[in-house]
């Protein structure tokens, strides 16, 4: 299945082709946000610019999915909330370690998984 995109999120998805994880930075309140929106969800300003995440964060929480209706990833796999150093929380996968070898609050860093059309998904591995 092709992951959909729209006029607001297209630049974010294009940046994944070159291994860049973009966030939106609000010119009014300086907050960073993810996913991309047409306004800042913290203050309502439409003064938003793209900024690149340093790709560092911590595992807020995670779950090992043992039974899945999806063709991929192949179960068991790890779904997680990762809190980036810049502030926003992403839903993602944790990779590069056994599924039962993860803990909340452990540091992680960005890596990428291709989705088949040149775009990539930001996922995270152990720091």
């Amino acid at each position: 299945m092709t992951i959909p995109a729209d006029e607001i999120t297209a630049p974010w998805w294009e940046a994944t082709r070159r291994g860049s994880l973009l966030l939106q930075r609000c010119g009014a309140c300086r907050r960073a946000q993810h996913y991309p929106r047409a306004l800042c969800a913290a203050c309502g300003s439409t003064d938003l610019t793209w900024t690149e995440s340093a790709g560092r964060g911590v595992v807020d929480s995670f779950t090992v999915v043992h039974r899945s209706p999806f063709p991929e990833p192949q179960a068991p796999y790890v779904v997680a909330r990762v809190r980036l150093a810049e502030g926003p929380v992403l839903l993602t996968n944790l990779v590069g370690a056994a599924p039962d070898d993860w803990r909340c609050d452990e540091p992680v860093r960005l890596t990428w998984r291709p989705v088949g059309d040149g775009r990539r998904l930001p996922v995270f591995e152990k720091e």
Partner: peptide, 29 residues
């Protein structure tokens, strides 16, 4: 058409179960 279809579904969360599972994991921790 939802943001979740772009930014959450590709990671394969069970809906709604995986969210409650992450809440539980955080709660235990």
């Amino acid at each position: 058409h939802t943001p979740q279809a772009q930014f959450e579904t590709p990671y394969g969360p069970l809906f709604p179960l995986s969210h409650y599972a992450m809440a539980a994991q955080r709660y235990l921790h």
